[in-house]
């Protein structure tokens, strides 16, 4: 394997390890769950992405062909991390109703969906039912 390729792979592994440590230290050190959410969802995902790119380059270096598995795992992780963070934040707000005054206004006629009932949408559904009856 070429020297520059080894150098790039080593650098990616070390940088990925640093990012993973930063994510977990943030998970331990930050004061509140809403702050703690930032560390694992961003830093840890980036660290795993670095290790996966390093693995892709390594097997390209020793086998001579690009493997797609790592791209699959990377894409899956980068797609699911925001969804997970959103769900965790929403469940946290659901369990702590005392956080409601801290939230900024939504700028809409109705409030936050976790705390307030959804807007009245029966009008549109009634119209749909009438349209179905005509059919």
């Amino acid at each position: 394997m070429a020297f520059w390729l080894e150098l790039v792979i080593s650098l990616l592994i070390v940088v990925g390890g640093c990012f993973v440590i930063v994510g977990s230290v943030g998970l331990v050190k930050l004061p509140d769950l809403m702050s703690r959410l930032h560390a694992p969802t961003k830093a840890t995902t980036l660290g795993v992405g670095g290790a996966l790119v390093a693995s892709m380059l390594y097997f390209w270096g020793i086998e001579g062909k690009v493997s797609i598995h790592e791209v699959l795992i990377t894409a899956f992780l980068f797609l699911t991390a925001p969804v997970t963070a959103h769900f965790v934040a929403k469940a946290y707000l659901h369990q702590h109703p005392e956080k409601k005054p801290e939230l900024p206004p939504t700028g809409r006629p109705y409030g936050w969906s976790t705390y307030d009932a959804p807007p009245d949408s029966t009008a549109g559904q009634a119209g749909d039912v009438e349209a179905e009856k005509k059919d």
């Binding site: 592994i13 990925g16 993973v20 994510g23 977990s24 998970l27 769950l33 703690r36 959410l37 694992p40 840890t44 995902t45 660290g47 795993v48 290790a51 996966l52 693995s55 790592e70 795992i73 992780l77 997970t84 965790v88 469940a91 946290y92 369990q95």
Partner: peptide, 20 residues
Amino acid sequence: MDRVLAVDTMMINAIALIIL
């Protein structure tokens, strides 16, 4: 939810460990 977040992060770190 702190515990849920910790387990989720452990899962991602386990993936990194397997890759390495």
